[in-house]
């Protein structure tokens, strides 16, 4: 995975934003404010302006973190920013990520989000999706099919958490209702990955 891969994926997400934004707002309206899509659209738009002259993934991730940070002060935006900052530190000087490096960076991003937000794994948050993807990437052996593995892991995480309540944040107050619906952050990961990695 290189700078061009990520930049290209981000561009595909940006192109698909109108539909993604609407779907995520609708999903969030069931257990939140109904604005997750709009908030993430602003984050993606800000990230779109971030470029790298030399392809260094460390500085690219850090600049993406700053872009997220300046777009929103929401909890989810905060977590995204923390994840990218952790990724940036680890990827400093790297122009390409091999499978195990990607798995490690995803794990570090997950841990940074846990620290920043105070959630635990199993609380049904975006962090559970990142955890599932990190584990799948670490366990899988065939680099060529990595995009499929990541998309499938995000989808599986969504399914695994259906029927379970959200245990943190505003959505925890929706108790039983939150069992019925996907966490908007987890859903966003699955939807964005599918678009970014161009699987229809």
């Amino acid at each position: 995975m290189m700078y061009e891969t990520i930049k290209g994926g981000l561009a595909r997400v940006a192109d698909a934003l109108p539909a993604l934004e609407k779907d995520l707002n609708l999903a969030d309206a069931k257990i939140g404010d109904g604005d997750t899509g709009g908030m993430l659209a602003r984050v993606v738009e800000n990230m779109q302006s971030v470029t790298s002259d030399d392809g260094d993934l460390g500085s690219y991730f850090l600049n993406l973190s700053f872009a997220a940070q300046s777009a929103t002060g929401s909890s989810l935006g905060n977590l995204i920013s923390a994840a990218l900052a952790a990724a940036g530190k680890k990827a400093n000087g790297l122009r390409q990520l091999e499978r195990l490096q990607l798995a490690e960076i995803l794990s570090l991003a997950r841990d940074a989000m846990l620290r920043r937000g105070g959630a635990s794994l199993g609380d049904k948050t975006v962090i559970d999706a990142v955890h599932a993807i990190a584990k799948a990437v670490a366990d899988f052996k065939d680099q060529a099919d990595l995009p499929t593995v990541m998309i499938d892991a995000a989808d599986a995480a969504l399914i695994n958490f259906r029927g379970r309540p959200v245990r943190i944040g505003r959505a925890r107050m929706f108790a039983d209702t939150s069992r019925e619906f996907d966490d908007p952050g987890m859903l966003a990961v699955a939807m964005f990955l599918r678009v970014a990695l161009a699987r229809q």
């Binding site: 404010d33 604005d35 940070q69 300046s70 777009a71 929103t72 002060g73 909890s75 905060n78």
Partner: peptide
């Protein structure tokens, strides 16, 4: 911040 959204870290 934006509507029903915390202010940014910079703010």
């Amino acid at each position: 911040g934006n509507v029903f959204e915390g202010p940014t870290l910079d703010a």
